[in-house]
């Protein structure tokens, strides 16, 4: 009797394991059945996520603030100190004002780049039971979002659309270990590959062996064919640490992203890349040049010395 029960248990175990392995094999062979089931789940979950997000997001933000309290305060103090220093420099040197204006131009990402974007609210974060890093947003294919579109925040690159339903989409964050993006160093124009590490830091490997990396170098996306999945010129991050390994074939560095992925409330999905010069990433907007044209007015005079009237005409022309 007990042996019969044991046999039944073993048979059940074998059946369940074989079924699970069968599903895994189907998925790895690319059968769309499994993808379809996940899309259905996402469609069912997104209304609940939207509602829960609306109700409970203040609690989530509060816990996030508590978690980042020390860090935020330190960052704020540092930012205030930097702000004071920059302000005094601005007063002292007019050149610095020009640089500051250029910096503002660089940061004005979407407007200057001419990206066509859709703003979306974050309604969910990746499950703790998987090691992937994702967010769910409240806009989907109805708003024109498709798979493999670039997602940005006010500070720069956030990730890439991984899966879309009619009313929601899942975004793979750039911190996910499977995330890779081609980047360009703005200073040297060297090209490299940036990969997520699962935390706030990223690894950069230069493709060009002769290229150089310096601490403080700014990185922007290099762009992909037809702007999918990545549009060019999106700020990505800054080099913080150089990896000086003599054994390494390629130069590498650790990068910190501009976007704070732990505190995303609203993001933008880039529907269309800029139509003008898409291959040129992040160039400062040319400042208007003031040209003063002085027209001498012939004044009848009895004097033998010609005079110039102090009434110049001023015109502003762009470079």
């Amino acid at each position: 009797m007990a042996q019969g029960s044991g046999n039944r248990s073993r048979l059940l175990l074998v059946i369940l394991l074989v079924t699970a392995l069968f599903f895994v094999t189907l998925d790895l062979r690319g059968v769309s059945l499994t993808k379809g089931s996940r899309s259905v789940t996402q469609t069912m979950l997104s209304p609940v996520q939207k509602t829960v997000s609306t109700i409970f997001s203040p609690l989530g933000r509060f816990l996030s603030d508590v978690k980042n309290f020390g860090k935020t305060k330190a960052e704020l103090d540092q930012a205030l100190a930097e702000n004071k220093k920059l302000s005094s420099q601005l007063v002292l040197a007019s050149e610095t004002k020009g640089e500051s204006a250029q910096l503002n131009g660089v940061l004005d990402l979407a407007g200057r780049g001419g990206y066509k974007v859709v703003a979306a609210r974050v309604i969910g974060h990746g499950s703790a039971s998987s090691f992937s890093q994702t967010i769910t947003i409240n806009q989907g294919s109805r708003s024109g979002i498709k798979n493999d579109m670039t997602v940005i925040s006010q500070n720069g690159l956030v990730g890439l659309v991984k899966n879309v339903t009619s009313t929601s989409a899942i975004v793979l964050l750039m911190s996910d270990p499977s995330f890779k993006v081609g980047v360009k160093i703005t200073r040297s124009q060297s090209i490299g590959i940036l990969q997520g590490q699962g935390n706030g830091s990223y690894s950069l490997v230069l493709l060009d062996p002769a290229g150089t990396i310096k601490v403080g170098d700014n990185l922007v996306t290099n762009g992909s064919d037809n702007n999918h999945p990545f549009i060019p010129g999106v700020p990505v991050g800054q080099v913080t640490v150089l990896d000086n390994s003599t054994a390494a074939l390629a130069q590498s560095a650790t990068v910190e992203s501009y976007a704070n992925l732990n505190d995303l409330g609203v993001v933008s999905v880039v529907l269309a890349a800029p139509t003008v010069a898409p291959s040129v990433p992040l160039r400062p907007t040319p400042n208007p040049t003031v040209t003063v044209l002085v027209t001498p007015t012939p004044t009848p005079s009895t004097s033998t010395t010609p005079t110039v009237s102090p009434s110049p005409t001023t015109s502003i022309k762009k470079k």
């Binding site: 079924t19 699970a20 189907l26 499994t34 990746g126 039971s129 899942i170």
Partner: peptide, 17 residues
């Protein structure tokens, strides 16, 4: 069924069994 999962479908079923 988790839409955020990168793992192949059936992986969790196998593990939890």
């Amino acid at each position: 069924l988790s839409p955020t999962s990168n793992a192949p479908f059936g992986q969790w079923a196998l593990i939890l069994t």
